[in-house]
Nucleic acid binder design. Structure first.
Lengths: 349, 349
DNA sequence: TGCCTCTGCGAAAACGTTTGGGCAACTTTC
DNA sequence: GAAAGTTGCCCAAACGTTTTCGCAGAGGCA
């Protein structure tokens, strides 16, 4: 079997020099023609010859050499705290598509137990990465320092940070409000909120959305109706129990995962969903449709978030540094639509 | 338009030359010392000076330049058909950790609607990627041709392919059997199988595991007890209905997702799980614990799969081509343990 | 004819590494 | 005390691009 593995015997790729030789011109000319240089100044005839030769020899520019020369690797990095979280998976997907469309390559790095700092540190000194998208949970100073030290353009996603930090996030406050309003429209008055991590951007925003929707409907956003569970399904039962003590008829969960756990716990207690308690969630995903009842939830444009992030990043890359401050650096994406399924119904009196 | 690339104002990284100047030696000496060259021949004193200078200047070798020179980019690529599938997410996680530990960078690419071919095509001519891990669903010829044309070492994961193809997969046949045997041990005799994609590696293997466990227990592996649902939750209800007609008392689902959908559908029909029907699944994941009842399943070493894949790939990279054929190129990972939760119980007569 | 401006292209210097080949000085050997 | 071997380092040529500079020749203008 022809099993050529090591780089040593791998056939050499065709280079600029090969094309130049084939077309009978200098490498510089080939480079210019193939790059479609603006001030290109070549005869149509020569250009034709070069293009044909390149075609025939299947020439592809070596990205390494190009990057070395231009200090532009056309490579972006996205740092995520976890990949199994559907929100991040979806964001990565969107970012990858956008990056690919723009001729960039997207690298994925994981920030398990705060290792983002080390990743960024490695990035900072190598010229491999042109820009970074950061989706890390960490909001402490170490990460922020790493970001600053990195000395590369970046955009933060999934949260908005104070200061002049470019961010793109979903307006989860609004998303929350939509879900809660749906419950109100169904006649519910005592609506509990299983909160995410309070103190963090999304946790706070979602809680606030609940609060605003309640207030807007003239209902009391009683803090007693909020029970924090973070992103941890293990903490959901206790939270739900507390809410049940408060005689809620509906529960609004801050994440799809905790929402599913909420329904599971209600079932465990022998309660019917939505017969006894209605449940509404946030973020739409396969998970919402493999439980019974299927979950009513409001979609989040997480994939768009990825798209927008690389769009912003690439814009930033193409701009001289002084112009960078001119555009509004934070983008808050409108939430998606309410997807009505089976986990919420009108209040039976 | 002013084409002022941002790189202009970004501070230049410290280079080999800077270190050389600081230490008062030649760049070549610095290079050798820092690489810990085997036949290094430098005085301890000089070496000390160089190391200190490098430390002080925070020198990090430019991976681009190194790759250009050595044709070794220390970059691996993993091609996955979907990232939201927990199996792949977990495999990526494992692969990334192993790659990082070995000083490699792992790139992730998506093979949405068969775009892997184009990804591989781009790879083939650039010297950026040293080796590829392929987890694509596609088993048609176009992908296989792209792989061959790529002319780079690779390993296929999540399935074993015929021929001399290096593969690492989980022994899902054995995993299946474990789950089915658990049901048998609980007293079940009529056990249905909600199959994955029959005709594909994993679909077949899991079905075969069910069959073998049934036969081993002296039960009839009646083909009527098998209903295919692929990986698509939408197809689960019909499959479950068919199984119910066959009077099964337990269902073994080929994937966690379809298993969850199975439970959901049973609930929808007003059946109790595991009171009326027991359900056992494969692959352990958060999802198994946010539904009620929590799902009894057998763990799959998907993360190990990623680990092993890069281990094999890196071994391959370091070997002369003739030695490559010596080691057994396919690795079948033993399944994990049965995780008993609440979705299966002993048969009530 | 002399001068100037375009055109079309080549020469060569980078980018930051790695690496083979050398060359002194110093040590051993006879 | 000279030949031979060792040690410690430097020189320079790559790797495959991009890009600045410059140089011939062609044409325009006086």
């Amino acid at each position: 079997m022809t099993k050529e593995t090591t780089s040593a015997q791998r056939s050499r790729n065709t280079t600029l020099r090969d094309v130049a030789k084939a077309a009978g011109v200098d490498v510089s000319t080939v480079s210019r023609v193939l790059k479609n240089d603006k001030d290109v100044r070549t005869s149509a005839e020569t250009r034709q010859r070069i293009i044909e030769a390149a075609e025939r020899l299947k020439y592809r520019a070596n990205p390494l050499a190009r990057a070395l020369k231009t200090a532009q690797s056309r490579t972006l990095l996205i740092v995520v705290p976890q990949i199994e979280n559907p929100v991040f998976a979806s964001a990565i997907l969107g970012a990858e598509a956008e990056a690919r469309a723009r001729g960039y390559v997207l690298l994925v790095a994981y920030d398990q137990n705060g290792s983002a700092a080390s990743v960024l540190e490695r990035v900072s000194q190598s010229s491999l990465i042109e820009g970074v998208i950061i989706a890390s949970f960490d909001e402490d100073d170490s990460l922020r320092q790493s970001i600053a030290a990195m000395n590369r353009p970046y955009v933060v996603i999934n949260r908005v940070l104070p200061g002049d930090v470019p961010c793109v996030a979903v307006d989860t406050c609004a998303a929350s409000a939509i879900g809660v309003r749906h419950l109100i429209d169904l006649g519910h008055r005592r609506i509990g909120h299983v909160a995410g991590r309070l103190g963090r951007f999304n946790g706070n925003a979602r809680r606030q959305g609940w609060e605003e929707a309640m207030s807007a409907a003239g209902l009391d956003p009683d803090p007693q109706l909020v029970a924090e569970a973070g992103y941890d399904p293990e903490r959901v039962p206790a939270a739900v129990d507390r809410l049940l003590e408060r005689k809620v008829t509906a529960i609004h969960a801050a994440t799809l995962l905790t929402g599913a756990a909420t329904i599971a716990h209600l079932h465990k207690l022998g309660l019917d969903v939505p017969g006894d308690i209605s449940v509404v969630t946030m973020h739409d995903d396969l998970l919402a449709r493999v439980v019974y009842p299927e979950i009513t939830t409001v979609g989040l444009p997480t994939s768009e978030m990825g798209h927008e992030a690389v769009r912003m990043l690439v814009d930033q890359l193409g701009m001289p540094s002084d112009a960078a401050s001119q555009r509004p650096p934070v983008l808050l994406l409108a939430p998606g639509n309410l997807v009505v399924r089976g986990s919420a119904s009108s209040l039976k009196i």
